[in-house]
């Protein structure tokens, strides 16, 4: 019996680890945004197109709910969620604002040319300052801002799978 003891201990530990890893909703790395319920931080950045007006926090206080999406042309998951953003803008009539994170404007524009442009307005966050103020943990990340400039919801990571139907749209509906 005693020669099996080490094996039994190892299997028990493996079971424990497996339980911990697959537990629902346990993601020690997901950081819940503390920006929820707070006014969106003030910012002012240039637009992507050279002649376009810049983007400021005033654009978030138009009385209409706005989705703010942080993206980058070099970010693979951003491509994955692009379809969802297009659907939001085209089919659900949502106003989506895109902020290009640490990305040159020409590349961002090429990205939008290629995949379609769902954004009502865009801004270029060249040094990532705005993203830091917003507490963005990585691109893509999407915030829902109500008409008065208060952040009401944050979507962590790409909007893929049932993320659009199950999370983003209900949050948007709740504002209307």
């Amino acid at each position: 019996m005693q020669r099996f003891a080490p094996l039994i201990i190892v299997l028990a530990l493996a079971g424990l680890f497996f339980m911990m890893m697959t537990q629902e909703g346990r993601n020690p790395n997901e950081i819940k945004s503390v920006m929820i319920g707070k006014p969106a931080p003030a910012f002012s950045i240039p637009g992507l197109e050279a002649d376009a007006p810049g983007l400021t926090d005033a654009d978030l206080r138009t009385g209409e709910p706005v989705l703010v999406n942080f993206f980058a042309s070099w970010c693979v998951p951003c491509r994955a969620e692009h379809e969802s953003l297009m659907a939001l803008a085209r089919e659900h009539g949502a106003t989506v604002i895109g902020i290009a994170y640490k990305d040159t404007p020409d590349r961002s524009l090429a990205f939008l040319d290629e995949l379609g442009n769902p954004f009502a307005k865009t801004g270029a966050d060249l040094d990532g300052r705005v993203a830091i103020d917003w507490g963005v943990t990585g691109v893509p990340e999407t915030f829902l801002v109500d008409g008065s400039g208060t952040i009401v919801y944050r979507h962590w990571g790409p909007i893929v799978g049932d993320g659009l139907e199950a999370q983003v749209l209900p949050a948007l509906e709740a504002l209307k």
Binding site: R3, F4, P6, L7, V10, L11, A14, F17, F18, M21, T22, N29
Partner: peptide, 27 residues
């Protein structure tokens, strides 16, 4: 390290095979 569960499951499986295998052989 920044991590994701898929990796965790893989490495756990590997662990079980290597350690479990060796200890079975031992027993």
């Amino acid at each position: 390290f920044a991590n994701d569960p898929a990796r965790g499951v893989f490495i756990l499986g590997f662990l079980v095979v290597v350690i479990g295998g060796a200890l079975t052989l031992y027993a």
